[in-house]
Design a binder for these strands. Sequence first.
DNA 1: ACGAGACTAGACAGGTCTGTCTGCTATCGT
DNA 2: ACGATAGCAGACAGACCTGTCTAGTCTCGT
Lengths: 194, 194
Amino acid sequence: MSAASPSTTRKPSARDRLLAAADELFYAEGIHTVGIDRVIERAGVAKASLYSTFGSKEELVRAYLEGRHALRRTRLLAGLERYDDPRDRLLGVFEVLAELTGTPGFRGCPFYNASAESTPGGAIELVSNANRAWTRGLFFELARDAGAKDPATLADQLVVLYDGASVGGRMDKDSKAALMARDIATMLLATATL
Amino acid sequence: MSAASPSTTRKPSARDRLLAAADELFYAEGIHTVGIDRVIERAGVAKASLYSTFGSKEELVRAYLEGRHALRRTRLLAGLERYDDPRDRLLGVFEVLAELTGTPGFRGCPFYNASAESTPGGAIELVSNANRAWTRGLFFELARDAGAKDPATLADQLVVLYDGASVGGRMDKDSKAALMARDIATMLLATATL
DNA sequence: ACGAGACTAGACAGGTCTGTCTGCTATCGT
DNA sequence: ACGATAGCAGACAGACCTGTCTAGTCTCGT
């Protein structure tokens, strides 16, 4: 009962702890309001370790957002695997979003939030746009698979709904907006496949 | 040709110049990234004047947001006066939003942006919520006047569309999302008044 | 056993931020 | 004419933030 398998019981690396702490703090309180000292304190990591692995705060922010991007992709795709019917899969995006916005810690889209407090033209904008493009692409594929006559237009409409549901979830602190968005999406899907 | 009427040609008060400078800078670059020094420099105002009239940066931010709130109300209501038919008035909200998101300087909802970069529980959240409640109330009245059977639900749906169009306008830098939102709103209105 | 690499603790430098304080000037009402 | 008010210019204090550096510890592969 000493140390079991080294890879599972060992304390996570400084990089992983740093990323976990940055994720929690940056998402919950914003990037500018959270200083490096708070991140390393929560991570239990020396400041030199942060700068030797990431080089700068901006790079840490970038890694945080890329982690969010990856997590979002896997969670969304995993959530959609519950459904077989293409229409259900499309609407399932809003089901997943409803679950997410119902979570107490939900604070809106991390990419939009980050871009709202950082000057444009930087790495944040790039990751943000990549995430946005991925979302639109996912909706396009789902719309096409569901038999939409004009999947591109339907995808654009669904993006509007998704964004609105995300904002509503943050500001109103419930998932009502996401459920509304799902209902509207149902209507749009019905008329788009007539 | 010396000084005409004192109230019109005179240089605006320090307070007004401060508010104008804060509005431009805070909205364009964010609240945290813009320091007091930049604001007073653009306003052409001494630092002591800022602190004697507003007392703190947070209060200046609050005044900035309240100015935005007032401006938004007047602009929206003025924009709706072009329409007579209740349905056109409801959809007119999205027309106004489309014009706004087409403007080069558009950077999204100032209230959401501000709340994204400030810790909750402060004055920003209050003004933000007031603005949001006003929007919902406006949609409710417009929905009722347009003959919606369930104006509260329609208002909630329209809020989702409005938020989504605002986010889309900021991230995609065009007014496509607003026009999409208007089309969807047209559909929703049609089915809500059947 | 031992050397390399990863990590820790914390002092330190340089910059920036908010907010205060001291003088000085101009304008306006009475 | 003159006092009150508003405003300007800039130095200054104190806090905070990013990023660097030194020095010591721990762990692991060989």
